[in-house]
Design a binder for these strands. Structure first.
Length: 877
RNA sequence: GGGCGUAUAGCUCAGCUGGUUAGAGCGUUGCAUUGACAUUGCAAAGGUCUCCCGUUCAAUUCGGGAUACGCCUACCA
């Protein structure tokens, strides 16, 4: 084995071996018990893997590998999303840049085919990146949301939902003229979640429609006022009460309007003039008011964001030109009362950041509260009853509030990239059908909202409703996604899953946080603070990157990731490598290949204190690792494993093993077990070490996960006694002596003499005397039941045991006095605190006896220690 | 405006159902180093657990409030 672990030498080969074994495919796993299914969230097929994807994959792969080692039939199903609008935007930019053409130059069919090829090409590249992170997914089942079989399922669902009609004739999916968010650049409708809000300063204009209109109103969008059909006032507002119900015919900048005064309790009397101009066609609130009051709807702005004909000189102007012109006109006529700077939220397109035009348009909608099957109610029920368990728990409330506030979902998009809506028209006739009804029928031009496809990922990937995989693997065990797509994706999968399959699509829903840079800033290309996963993997190794994404990262919380952290875990990979390297030099060859589990843990013969201690610790860590993984506490699991591996195994046990010798059996067992425990976290280095031990015939990936074994020898005792307590004492004696050396600046080569006054621990310490001598670098060590502090020595107290180190001539008496004095003071404070507590009757009477007893025990120990410290201090004087 | 979250060592964070002399990693300081590992070892310094009030024998932990900072959401034109 090389002196240092070089990830680049091994990783690709290891991955290749895993892949060639076919064991990523659950069909090839034998002797399985139960199944474990995780459908990986499909990233957009137009880009590349970023560190956010990587952080999700690492969790998914950890779980997959853990369950595979538990002997379950594991399926991690990978895939890609066609990402309708985003891919179309990306590809349009590309052809514009490379060929100077638009999608219209290509035509719909050619454009579609080119994007398809483009996405497939990118997918392949992304797949190679996903393999680099170690993802043990079944690539033979990889899916793409635009694959014909998946599209077919999505279209069938549409038809089924369209045909779901209640007794009033309302459809679960309906077509209607409603106000929607329109992106004039993407030239498509958007759902509410595809709109972002940006704060910006704008002007708030206060004006009168005309001189004969009785009062003023305020607006930030004067150009839309051309379509006003009402003014809403609060019914309690005395100023306007008398006008309610009246109709005014006004001449607004040369355009005749009919304005009805309507009451609405939502109008804020204190905002502006307390009167709100109602523009039903270009504001979602106004549109709803118009529905309630049967107001006419006048469309002013068209899909190109230009003014419709019929508005005099404003017709044909762009919305912003029209705004200027309307304001000018008002000003010229003395109708503009006020212009104020005003901070409001501008809606912009999530994909291209173009300001959204709310406008009325004919689109397809999903009724989220249909009489036959209420999507929102059934989702709420499933979440409330924890048929889907959400991690972290607080996201349950977030999900519920989303469900409660959801509105009908606009699923049609006026783009070319995506499954085309399976509705056919002929004259006035309309039919929903996957295939053309025949000659002369023309298909709806629109495509589906991407989330209508990806919302069916949970079963479309498994060949719903008749596929073998669907029968075997639905619903999945866990779904893992970034917390930012909860409303987009998690919610939609749940409602569509419940409707189509009658079951929840997954049993557990786990949200990851965002990955930020080391200063907590969002990573972005423009800031240049991003971490490119492949680059960083090449530098530090996949395992290091995986650990930095797992440890210190808690569910739903954001993670700050800097290079230093990754370097730290690179060091740890190397540590593990060297632990293995050491153990393999110690174990005799014939023992190396001995199979795990051959160690009889209960057999107590010849086991030293250190042996019993490390085995009990190992046993604990097997338990805690398993439990923490099951509970999605990956960080805890990793941290405890690292502590065990580095601070207990490497720093103590291996050092002791060098002294005690003859431990091949235990060392072999230890190495074997920690490799298994680490494998889900850091699959590459563990697999490589495994190969060094067992050769290429056995793969760690499918070895069996270690089991917790309860036995006297492996179960830790109480902290004050038993194996754990005894070993702790041994450790503290060694650390105490080392500390004295360091404080008194005694060079490590100089060996010291020490005497221990050990009381009833004399026998125990005698057995381990050699360990103390070597690790604390002592020349002579004398262990007595009771010893008197020798002249020229200084000492310390540890669990009733006094250690005297001969420092005659070297020790700085004054410094030592200061140290002891400080310790004395601290102890006195501690003792008086405890004594006070114990003399408090309330405490003694109310606290559980065990607690009181514990405090009493602490007090006794502290008093004893204090007496000894005082004694030593006296000796120095 | 509504909702959610976070405030613990210089930095990044653990600390579950109240009783620990409050922990880790990184960083810092001192010492060491060719024998598993300098991608190392040993030792140490560093915290009135944001503030106030309450519940309790006991609060970093539970409740209320304040302050600060995040994130999500929204139809004040």
């Amino acid at each position: 084995m090389d002196k240092a672990y070089e990830p680049n030498l091994y990783e690709d080969n290891i991955y290749k071996r895993w892949e060639e074994s076919g064991l990523f495919n659950p069909d090839n796993l034998t002797n399985t018990k139960g199944r474990y299914v995780n459908l990986l969230p499909p990233p957009n097929a137009n880009g590349e893997m970023h560190v956010g994807h990587a952080s999700g994959y690492v969790v998914m792969d950890l779980l997959g590998r853990y369950h595979r080692m538990k002997g379950e039939k594991v399926l991690l199903l990978p895939g890609k999303d066609h990402a309708g609008i985003q891919s179309q935007v990306v590809y349009e930019k590309k052809i514009k840049k490379e060929q100077g053409i638009s999608r219209h130059d290509l035509g719909r069919e050619k454009f579609y085919n080119e994007i398809f090829a483009f996405c497939k090409d990118r997918s392949q590249y992304m797949r190679s990146q996903e393999k680099k992170i170690g993802l043990s997914a079944d690539w033979s089942r990889e899916k793409f949301t635009m694959d014909p079989d998946l599209v077919k399922i999505v279209l069938d669902t549409f038809v089924q939902m369209y045909n779901e009609v209640d007794n009033k004739g309302n459809r679960l999916i309906y077509r209607g003229d409603r106000i929607i968010n329109w992106c004039p650049r993407c030239f498509t409708a958007l759902s509410d979640v595809e709109v972002e809000h940006e704060e910006q300063m704008t002007k708030l204009y206060t004006f009168k429609y005309s001189n004969d209109f009785p009062f003023t109103i305020s607006t930030t969008r004067p150009e839309t006022k051309l379509g006003d059909t009402a003014v809403a006032v609060n019914e309690k507002d005395k100023r306007y009460k008398k006008y309610i119900g009246q109709e005014f015919k006004v001449d607004f900048v040369g355009v005749p309007l009919t304005i009805k005064i309507i009451p609405d309790h939502e109008v804020d009397m204190n905002f502006g003039t307390g009167a709100l101009g109602v523009t039903p066609a270009h504001s979602a609130v106004d549109w709803e008011m118009a529905q309630k009051n049967n107001l006419p709807i006048v469309k002013v702005i068209n899909e190109q964001a230009r003014i419709y004909p019929g508005f005099g000189k404003f017709s044909g102007l762009s919305a912003s030109e029209a705004r200027t012109a309307v304001v000018e006109e008002l000003r010229a006529n003395g109708l503009l009362e006020k212009e104020e700077e005003y901070l409001n939220n501008l809606s912009v397109c999530e994909r291209c950041k173009t300001p959204i035009e709310p406008l009325v348009s004919k689109q397809w909608f999903v009724n989220v509260d249909h009489a036959n099957f209420s999507l929102k109610k059934s989702a709420r029920k499933a979440i409330e009853k924890e048929e889907i368990k959400i991690y972290p728990e607080r996201f349950k409330d977030v999900m519920l509030s989303w469900i409660d506030n959801v509105r009908d979902w606009c699923i049609s998009r006026q783009i070319w990239w995506g499954p085309q809506i399976p509705v056919w028209y002929k004259g006035d006739e309309m039919v929903a059908s996957v295939d053309s009804p025949g000659e002369g029928w023309k298909q709806d031009e629109d495509t589906f909202d991407t989330w209508f496809s990806s919302g069916q990922w949970a079963y479309s990937t498994l060949g719903y409703p008749t596929g073998k995989d669907y029968q075997e693997f639905y619903p999945s065990d866990v779904m893992i996604m970034g917390r930012d797509i909860l409303p987009f994706w998690a919610f939609r999968m749940i409602i569509l899953g419940l409707y189509c399959t009658g079951e929840v699509p997954f049993k557990n829903l786990y949200f990851t946080g965002l990955v930020r840079d080391e200063n907590g800033q969002k990573m972005s290309k423009s800031k240049g603070n991003g971490i490119e996963p492949i680059e960083i993997i090449n530098k530090y190794g996949t395992d290091a990157v995986r650990l930095s994404l797992l440890i210190g990262n808690t569910p739903g919380n954001d993670l700050n990731l800097g290079e230093q952290k990754i370097a730290g875990f690179r060091n740890f990979s190397n540590k593990l490598w060297n632990i293995a390297r050491f153990i393999m030099t110690v174990i005799p060859t014939e023992a190396i290949r001995r199979v795990e589990g051959s160690l009889d843990l209960a057999r107590d013969d010849k086991k030293t204190l250190a042996d019993k201690w490390i085995l009990s610790k190992l046993n604990e860590v097997i338990k805690s690792t398993s439990e923490n993984i099951e509970q999605f506490n990956f960080s805890q699991a990793g941290e405890q494993l690292r502590d065990f591996t580095w601070n207990e195994l490497a720093d103590w046990y291996l050092e002791i093993a060098k002294i005690e010798g003859e431990k091949s059996e235990i060392l072999n067992y230890l190495l074997n077990t920690i490799l298994k425990l680490w494998h889900p976290f850091m699959p590459f280095v563990t697999e490589q070490i495994w190969t060094e031990i067992y050769g290429k015939d056995r793969m760690l990936m499918v070895e069996r996960w270690p089991v917790f074994v309860a036995s006297d020898a492996t179960t830790p005792g109480k902290p004050e006694g038993g194996v754990a307590g005894d070993f702790e004492l041994l450790k503290n004696i060694i650390t105490g002596i080392r500390s004295l050396r360091a404080e008194n600046k005694i060079e490590p080569v100089k060996k010291l003499n020490a005497i221990i006054s050990a009381g009833d621990k004399a026998g125990l310490l005698q057995e381990n005397a050699e360990i103390i001598k070597v690790l604390a670098r002592l020349e002579n060590l004398q262990i007595e039941e009771s010893a008197i502090k020798p002249e020229g020595s200084i000492g310390f107290v540890e669990s009733g045991v006094e250690v005297f180190v001969d420092l005659s001539g070297v020790v700085d008496i004054e410094k030592e006095k200061v140290r002891l004095e400080k310790e004395k003071q601290e102890l006195e404070k501690y003792v008086s605190g405890l004594a006070g507590k114990l003399s408090n009757k309330e405490f003694v009477n109310n606290a559980p006896p065990a607690v009181v007893e514990k405090e009493q025990h602490k007090l006794n120990e502290a008093k004893d220690k204090l007496a000894k410290v005082i004694n030593q201090l006296e000796g120095l004087r």
